[in-house]
Design a protein around this nucleic acid. Structure first.
Lengths: 243, 243
DNA sequence: CCGGAACGTCAATGGCGTTGGCATAAGGTG
DNA sequence: CACCTTATGCCAACGCCATTGACGTTCCGG
C-alpha cells in the first residue's frame, strides 16, 4: 500500500481531534514553524508536533508522507516569505542587494528548515518568481544574456550557500553552537606567536568578527564585480569546475 | 561525572576488541568517513560504526564524547586532506586560489561528510594550519591586519559555504538529485515567454550551466576585489549583519 | 437513512544515542 | 615473576525517535 495522503483540496471531512482541534495542512506547517523557532532545532519531532497540535502523532501521516514531505512544505513557505511584499523596479544593484538580503534573512528566520531546503530546487511558484525577478534586473540593466546568466548563477548560489552555512550554525543545539564560538577565544586567541605568528597577530580581530556573517561583504563584492563587467566587459573567469 | 575521554596522546593500553581489532581515534574516524561514502549520510550511526569496527558501540564513547565530537574529528580529517602536500610560497593570489580549490575539492570528495562538517569549527590541528596559511598569505602580501581578517573571513566562509552547498547536491539520494537536475529541463525550459520572459529568453543557457559549481567564479571575484583593495585601499562594505 | 470512505487513535516495531556497572587485561612497580 | 591500579571493552538497559497497520468513529453523498 503506497501511502495515499489525500491532497489538501480533496480534503473534506474535518473531524476534530480528541482535544477539539480541527487539523489542516496549513495549521500543521505553521505550528511546525513556530515550534522550530521557539524550541530550537531539536524541538520539532513528530511526537512533539502531535502533542502541540493536540493530536496523536500518527495523525500527521494523514497529511504528509513523512517528515521529509513536511520539511519541503515548510521550505516552500520560506521562499514565499522571502519574496513577500517585494516590489521590482529601481536600480539593478539596489534590487539585487535587496533580494539577496531578503532571501538570506528569510532562511535565517528558520534555520532548521533552511538547512534542509537551501540546496534543493523545488521548481515551485515562489522559487520561479525569484529567479525571473533576478534575471529581469540583470537583463534590464543591459547585461548580455550569457553575462546575465553568469551573474545570476553566482548570485543565487552564493546567497543560498551562505544562507545554508549561516543557518547551520544557528540550527545547532545551543551547547554545540556555544562551543563553536568559544573556540575562537579558547583556542585561536591563545596560540603562541612562535608557532602561529599570523593567527596570534590578528587574534583579537578574529574573536571580534568571526561570529558575524560574511554574506553582506561577499554580496557587495559580487555587485562590484558585476558592475565592472557592465561598464567595461571582461571575459569570464577561467574554467568553472564541474559539480 | 563529566565524561573523561582520555586524549589520544595519553592513551596507552591498546586492548584488542573481541574481534581482534585494536582501536584508535584515527581508525575510528577513517572508518566513519568510509561508511559515509559507501552507505550515504544516513549510513553512519554509532551502532553501525561499532559493527563495522568489530567493537561494541559503547566503546566508541571511550574515544569521543559523542556523535558531535566524532563529527568534528571527521571534519578536521577532511581539511587535513585538503592541505595534504600543500606548499606555501609564491604569489598570494595563486596561493589563495589553490587553497580554495583544494578545500572545495576535498569536501566534494566526501559529500556526506562535508554536509555534516562544513559549518563547524573544530579548533583542531589541520583547521588551524589552514587558517594560519591563509592569514600568512594575506599579511605577507601587505594587507593591513583588519583587511587581512576581512578577506580571510569572506574567503573561508565562502569556500566552506559553496563546499557545503555543492556537496549537499552530491549527497542526495540518486533519484532526488536527478529529479532536481531534471527540473531545469522540465520546468524552467518550458516556461512561456508571456509570463516569464527573462527565464524563457535564457533557458538554454540555464540548462547548460546551472548544474556546474559557481564557486570558481565567485572565488575569482573575491580575489579581484581583494587585489583592488591592496593597490588602492577602500573602506570595508557597510555594516555586516549579525549572525 | 444508509453505506463507504475519510479520519483520529491505539499499540507495536525496530531503530537510535547514550549511560552505568562489570569483568579483565595491560602497564608500571617491586 | 607477582601484584595492584585502572584504562578499556562489553553488556544490558533507558528513553527517545519515525513509522505502520488495525480498529472504531464520524461524516458525506446518494
Amino acid at each position: 500500500m503506497p501511502k495515499p495522503v489525500v491532497g489538501e483540496s480533496a480534503r473534506r471531512r474535518r473531524r476534530p481531534t480528541k482535544s477539539g482541534v480541527v487539523l489542516s495542512e496549513g495549521l500543521i506547517v505553521r505550528t511546525a514553524l513556530r515550534m522550530l523557532r521557539e524550541h530550537g532545532p531539536a524541538g520539532l519531532t513528530v511526537r512533539r508536533l502531535g502533542l502541540a497540535l493536540g493530536a496523536d502523532p500518527s495523525t500527521l501521516y494523514r497529511y504528509f508522507r513523512g517528515v521529509d514531505d513536511l520539511t519541503l512544505a515548510i521550505g516552500d513557505l520560506l521562499i514565499g516569505r522571502a519574496m513577500d511584499g517585494w516590489r521590482g523596479g529601481g536600480d539593478w544593484r539596489a534590487g539585487l542587494r535587496d533580494l539577496g538580503l531578503r532571501i538570506h534573512a528569510a532562511y535565517l528566520e528558520h534555520p532548521q528548515a533552511a538547512v534542509l531546503t537551501a540546496s534543493r530546487i523545488s521548481g515551485k511558484a515562489h522559487e520561479i518568481a525569484a529567479d525571473e525577478a533576478i534575471l529581469g534586473l540583470l537583463r534590464g540593466a543591459g547585461f548580455p544574456d550569457h553575462e546575465a546568466v553568469g551573474v545570476y548563477h553566482t548570485f543565487i548560489d552564493m546567497t543560498l550557500a551562505f544562507a545554508a552555512l549561516d543557518a547551520a550554525s544557528l540550527a545547532l543545539p545551543a551547547e554545540a553552537r556555544e562551543a563553536d564560538e568559544e573556540i575562537w577565544r579558547a583556542t585561536y586567541a591563545r596560540l603562541p606567536r612562535a608557532t602561529h605568528p599570523n593567527i596570534a597577530a590578528v587574534a583579537p580581530l578574529l574573536v571580534a568578527h568571526m561570529n558575524d556573517s560574511a554574506y553582506p561583504a561577499a554580496l557587495e563584492m559580487l555587485l562590484d564585480s558585476a558592475a565592472s563587467r557592465l561598464t567595461r566587459p571582461i571575459s569570464r573567469p577561467a574554467k568553472p569546475g564541474q559539480v
